[in-house]
Design a protein around this nucleic acid. Sequence first.
DNA 1: GTACACCCTCAAGCTACTAGAGGTTCAACC
DNA 2: GGTTGAACCTCTAGTAGCTTGAGGGTGTAC
Lengths: 142, 142
Amino acid sequence: MLTIGSLANKTGTKVQTIRYYEQIGLMPEPGRTEGGQRRYGDDELDRLAFIRHARQLGFSLEAIRELLDLSDHPHRPCLEADAIARRQLKQVEQRLARLEALRTELQRMVHECSGGQTADCRVLEVLRDHSECLTEHDEIGA
Amino acid sequence: MLTIGSLANKTGTKVQTIRYYEQIGLMPEPGRTEGGQRRYGDDELDRLAFIRHARQLGFSLEAIRELLDLSDHPHRPCLEADAIARRQLKQVEQRLARLEALRTELQRMVHECSGGQTADCRVLEVLRDHSECLTEHDEIGA
DNA sequence: GTACACCCTCAAGCTACTAGAGGTTCAACC
DNA sequence: GGTTGAACCTCTAGTAGCTTGAGGGTGTAC
């Protein structure tokens, strides 16, 4: 039996985050001691590890909710889980493309800074004038 | 003289976003018509374009506030602006590294999905067991 | 039995917006 | 001059995914 604190430690989660997951129904309501403190078993540890891992992979809480639901029904076809992962992959690839463009632009800004006064600072100048951009970047940063 | 709507159009911003920037002090309070509607000039257009461009490059509103402040004092040394841009570049590079790891992992998940039942779905299995990961990914998605 | 680390709930705060309600103004057209 | 309708106004609340804080109770080791 784990306290919320040790569950947090084992999964690299904050205590409050676990309570938050419970509040939004992603984690089940656990058993309690007589004094009202939460106690967790291995099922909850596994579930939380799953959630954290999926979060690290960039899945939204809603996507994770779907995945957990699928995982609770092992005889359904797995096409849905696959679709969710594909959607996620697509998003990751889009973000990568955007970030690469931003890196190029920022590198250029930094390399061209001569270290003089702000009046002739390339960093500020580039920001002032979008037309100087070498790259397309049209979505607000991930 | 521009209405808030045409300023929004010219900069690819939503009207509410402009009012929000004014509210948090990033945009100045503009002049008003007798009836109380906002009217903007070229200075404000430039300032908003600067903000939006910096946002597209992933700068936080706080970083932009600093950059605008530097930009308002053209005789200060530009080291600070350079430092902000470098900080930003570093963050972008970290995010890129993370996203590349995630892409690898997601690609593997998707490629190994056999299309059977969720019980033997690779997608769910990989999420269940972090130790199967080929890559390091230890920070929560962008 | 007492110290103190850990737990509890509830409410509010964070970033960067977005959406909606309910009402007013502007400019064009007749 | 009157009317229409798009665009404007303020204010409040909502979004994701947590984090922080206040004010108080519990569990366990010494």
